[in-house]
Amino acid sequence: MTPNGIDSRWLGLAIFIIVCLGAGGLGAIATTPEIEGWYKTIEKPSWNPPGWIFGPIWTTLYLMMAVAAWLVWKPEGFKAATTPLTLFAVQLLLNVAWSWIFFGMHQPGWAFVEIVILWSAIVATMAAFFRCSKIAGWLMAPYLAWGSFASVLNFTIWRMNT
Rank of each mutant, 00 (worst) to 15 (best):
M1I: 11
P3M: 11
P3Q: 06
P3G: 11
N4S: 11
G5I: 04
I6M: 11
D7V: 03
S8N: 14
S8G: 07
S8Q: 15
S8H: 13
R9T: 10
R9W: 08
W10Q: 02
L11F: 15
G12A: 07
G12F: 11
A14I: 12
A14Y: 11
I15H: 01
I15V: 14
I15R: 01
I15C: 07
I15A: 08
F16E: 01
I17A: 12
I18N: 00
C20N: 13
C20V: 00
C20K: 01
L21V: 10
A28I: 03
A28V: 06
A30C: 02
T32G: 11
T32Q: 15
P33N: 11
P33H: 12
E34Q: 15
E36G: 12
W38N: 05
Y39C: 09
K40D: 11
T41I: 00
I42W: 10
K44M: 08
W47C: 13
P49F: 02
P50Y: 01
P50S: 04
G51I: 01
W52T: 02
W52P: 01
I53F: 09
F54L: 03
G55F: 12
G55N: 07
I57T: 11
I57D: 02
I57R: 03
L61N: 03
L61H: 04
Y62L: 08
L63T: 05
L63R: 02
M65S: 06
A66I: 06
A66R: 00
A69V: 04
A69R: 02
W70A: 02
V72W: 04
K74C: 00
P75D: 01
G77F: 07
K79G: 10
K79Y: 02
K79S: 15
A80D: 12
T82V: 09
T83D: 03
P84S: 05
L85W: 08
L85G: 05
A89G: 07
A89N: 01
A89W: 01
N95K: 04
N95S: 05
V96Y: 05
A97S: 15
A97F: 09
W98I: 08
S99I: 07
W100K: 10
I101N: 11
F102T: 10
F102W: 14
F103Y: 15
F103G: 13
G104T: 08
M105N: 12
M105A: 15
H106G: 05
H106D: 10
H106A: 12
F112K: 05
I115Y: 06
I115L: 06
V116P: 02
W119K: 09
W119Y: 10
W119D: 09
S120D: 09
S120W: 03
A121F: 06
I122L: 04
A124Y: 02
M126Q: 14
F130W: 11
F130R: 13
C132E: 08
K134E: 14
A136W: 00
G137H: 00
W138K: 01
M140T: 12
M140S: 07
A141D: 10
A145T: 13
W146K: 03
G147D: 06
G147Y: 05
S148W: 06
S148F: 06
F149W: 02
A150L: 13
A150N: 10
S151G: 15
S151F: 04
L153D: 08
N154T: 14
T156Y: 01
I157D: 14
I157H: 12
R159E: 14
